[in-house]
């Protein structure tokens, strides 16, 4: 059933969604310290100013360390949980999975504060490692969700066929299951990396004196003079995340094409 006005509405809605992102590059190249109209002319100065800040590169390096570690650990934990949930029946399954997925619906402030309380109580120093601990907790549910759908689209008889043809459980996993869920693993790794990169609250409270990219950006907001260079940084980040997302989407679709399943669209 068609309602023609819907298309106009949807386009307007998309404009609303994209408005902040589209404004980013405009002001990143605008030759004015104030983010306001009318535009004052073209400059690449803000990019140079951003580039000149050593603190940015330290934060970036920290974010990469945190992001990559988180992505590997959360995806690994996700593989275990997704495999257990799609393949086995065992006592306490619902409760166990519920606890693993819980961080998806808990405010990050509450999680970070409760972890902080424990870390302080037992004297664990706050640094990048504690950020990683928090990020793995938050990212694992996303990994589980993505990987569960990857494992679910596997026909169980494929596994049985491999066993029937003489493979043991381990080689079945290696020769049949892993190649078929690989696209899911890659997209899980990319998405958990992106979430970790973007995460602020946990990084802010559990990082001690260490700064990640998001904490760095939050810090810069306090200095009006730094705002245009944040616009420049934001522009670059938006381009990067679009590139990352496109890659993730590519692998997801290839995975679907490979298993011959139907495309249901979307990551969530």
């Amino acid at each position: 059933m068609k309602f023609p006005a819907l298309k106009t509405y949807t386009v307007a809605y998309l404009l609303f969604l994209y408005a902040p992102i589209l404004l980013l590059p405009i002001f990143a190249f605008n030759d004015s310290k104030i983010i306001a109209f009318p535009l004052q002319g073209f400059t690449t100065g803000w990019f140079r100013m951003m580039w000149a800040d050593d603190a940015l590169f330290k934060a970036l390096r920290n974010s990469l360390i945190v992001g990559i570690s988180t992505s590997i650990m959360a995806t690994t934990l996700g593989i275990f949980a997704a495999r257990a949930s799609t393949r086995y029946a065992f006592p306490g399954k619902a409760a166990g999975l519920g606890l693993i997925m819980l961080p998806m619906v808990l405010p990050e402030m509450i999680m970070s504060m409760s972890m902080l309380v424990v870390f302080l109580a037992i004297g664990i120093p706050l640094n990048l490692f504690t950020i990683i601990l928090g990020h793995v907790l938050v990212c694992t549910p996303f990994a589980v969700a993505i990987l569960t759908s990857a494992f679910q689209s596997l026909d169980k008889s494929l596994e049985e066929a491999a066993q029937d043809l003489g493979e043991g459980p381990f080689s079945t996993f290696w020769r049949v299951i892993l190649p078929l869920v690989m696209p899911g693993i890659i997209s899980s790794a990319l998405i958990t990396f992106t979430i970790s990169l973007d995460e602020f609250i946990i990084a802010f409270f559990l990082g001690g004196t260490e700064t990640t990219l998001s904490v760095y950006i939050f810090g810069q907001f306090r200095f009006p003079a730094r705002v245009p260079s944040i616009m420049a940084l934001g522009t670059i980040l938006v381009c990067l995340s679009i590139a990352l997302l496109t890659t993730a989407e590519y692998f997801r679709r290839r995975g679907i094409a490979r298993t011959g399943a139907k495309d249901t669209g979307g990551f969530l």
Binding site: D155, S157, L158, Q163, D164, E167, G168, L180
Partner: peptide, 19 residues
């Protein structure tokens, strides 16, 4: 276990490895 039995199976869904 199934992988050591002298039987082989043709599955209803055929279970052809798609990769």
């Amino acid at each position: 276990p199934p992988n050591h039995r002298p039987t082989n199976m043709v599955f209803q869904s055929y279970a052809i490895f798609p990769h």
